[in-house]
């Protein structure tokens, strides 16, 4: 079970990092989301895996470690806020710069976008 879990975490990380290195914003945001799944699972794993042991006093004999769970719970919510922020930042960047590229090159797309924007303003 532990091996399977670790493979999944490693796989999510790989996919997240790969998407993080793409040249456009949307894959990057997808990558961040995948990476945050991986991070949350990894953090959660620091309490080891327990089956049928929810840390509710009196509910079971062995309790799962509640501390990583508490940490991960807030991490999930903050992760949502962060994903939302990055996504909206990407939208804003596209609206203001006319491009969704993050590879540092000034592309034909950007020029095109600028022109389109100018036309709209006229």
């Amino acid at each position: 079970m532990e091996l399977m879990y670790s493979i999944c975490v490693g796989f999510l990380t790989t996919a997240g990092v790969f998407l993080l290195l793409r040249a456009q914003t949307f894959p990057v945001v997808l990558g961040i989301t995948l990476l945050s799944y991986a991070v949350n699972l990894f953090l959660f794993a620091s309490g080891r895996l327990t089956v049928n042991g929810a840390s509710i006093v009196g509910a079971s004999e062995v309790y799962a470690d509640p501390l990583p769970q508490a940490l991960v719970l807030t991490a999930i919510v903050i992760g949502f806020a962060m994903t939302a922020f990055v996504l909206i930042l990407a939208m804003r960047a596209r609206a203001d710069l006319g491009s969704d590229q993050v590879d540092g090159r000034s592309s034909t797309l950007r020029k095109h976008g600028n022109k389109a924007r100018k036309e709209r303003q006229v």
Partner: peptide
């Protein structure tokens, strides 16, 4: 690079879990 990184994290996870 992503595969290297993922494998390191996965191993780390496994090392920790066991």
């Amino acid at each position: 690079v992503a595969a290297l990184f993922g494998s390191v994290i996965g191993t780390l996870c496994y090392v920790m879990l066991t």
